[in-house]
Design a protein around this nucleic acid. Structure first.
Lengths: 190, 190
DNA sequence: TTCATTTCTTGATTCAAATCAATGGAAAGC
DNA sequence: GCTTTCCATTGATTTGAATCAAGAAATGAA
């Protein structure tokens, strides 16, 4: 387990051994079975997460329909808007698979920042990257047709396309499962 | 002019007089006539902007069609992705109206950060806010119907709806001008 | 293995927005 | 002023995705 965490950390943060140790000592890692709801609509988020193993999704509930907005897999950071702005969440987050997550809270983050002040600059960078990524995704969604969005997904995230049930993928792509099925048929027969 | 800048600054940054002075001394403010292209596809962006007066839009050129992705008006910050990651831009930015802009460059930003190191933390915050804003916009676009998107625009940004030609607004909303016209008709007759 | 549940596919129909085409108005240029 | 160009509206038609409705396949549990 410690190994998984340090692997993740080294990929993102270039920490010294002491620094990595600081992370481990905070005891942040927890396991969650498939289906666990990590955050509910209307609730204040107390935690952010890093996926060490498994898959997490976020989704809005609109007129009884779940609308997936993101999937998070190994080494990805899940920071609910509600966690950042301390407003009630507008969406849900739940585990698509059995998960092992690094769970962060404001107090633990504070402790960490106290021990490792230079992490603040890294957070700065991560926020900037996140802003860019969100903008790109938004623009790609607007510009591309459903079929093009699926093609993009296929090339950029082939593993995810196999890992996730199609109806979840369809919801994420903003189409019905039926339409996704037909798109796939079209692509195969070309 | 200086007044406009200091007004903007005070709204965002809570600067001392000395700090505000540092901004002014860098001579960042320029005027651009309507139609000026501030950034072209394929080009490396050398500048970021703050709109002091006027309106700026960003758009992709897809198969000869302009697809608007954002409008920026007074006091809004325009940071091209290309400026941040120093990759060729995938989209255009141009002036919808005659504009007065505060123009930032990497060298000027450096000078500023040298004089006012505490601005770094503010940039940190702004990045975080931007990330949230982008995410919300993306999710709203996915969840809402064209009509709902227009309604949202109307309530959140009524001035902009009057300020911008409808066909630009339609492009931004991801619909044709004809459809927007029909949506407007529907709403009025209710 | 069998049964049940969940997920995916296929077909027929409906519906909303795009497209095509024309007209009416407003702003810009002379 | 008038003309021209650009923009908004309206109508008729087409199109692509949603919906409705069955089945088929895969997955999981007993």
């Amino acid at each position: 387990m410690h190994n998984t965490i340090t692997t993740f950390l080294s990929q993102h943060l270039q920490l010294s051994k002491e620094e990595a140790q600081a992370f481990l000592e905070l005891d942040l890692v927890k396991a969650f079975p498939k289906g666990t709801v990590l955050l509910e609509e209307g609730v204040l988020s107390k935690s952010c997460f890093v996926v060490l193993k498994g898959c997490v999704r976020s989704y809005y509930l609109v007129e009884g329909e779940e609308k997936n907005t993101a999937f998070y897999t190994e080494n990805q950071i899940v920071t609910p808007i509600s966690y950042q702005n301390q407003q009630p969440s507008e969406y849900y987050i739940s585990c698509l698979e059995d998960c092992i997550l690094c769970v962060g809270s404001t107090t633990k983050t504070e402790q960490l920042l106290n021990r490792l002040p230079h992490l603040e600059a890294i957070g700065y960078q991560l926020n900037g990257q996140k802003a860019i990524e969100n903008q790109r995704q938004y623009e790609a969604y607007k510009i591309l047709s459903p079929e093009q969005r699926y093609q993009k997904m296929l090339t950029e995230n082939p593993e995810l396309c196999n890992r996730i049930p199609q109806y979840h993928l369809a919801s994420y792509l903003g189409i019905t499962p039926e339409t996704l099925s037909r798109i796939r048929k079209r692509i195969v027969s070309q």
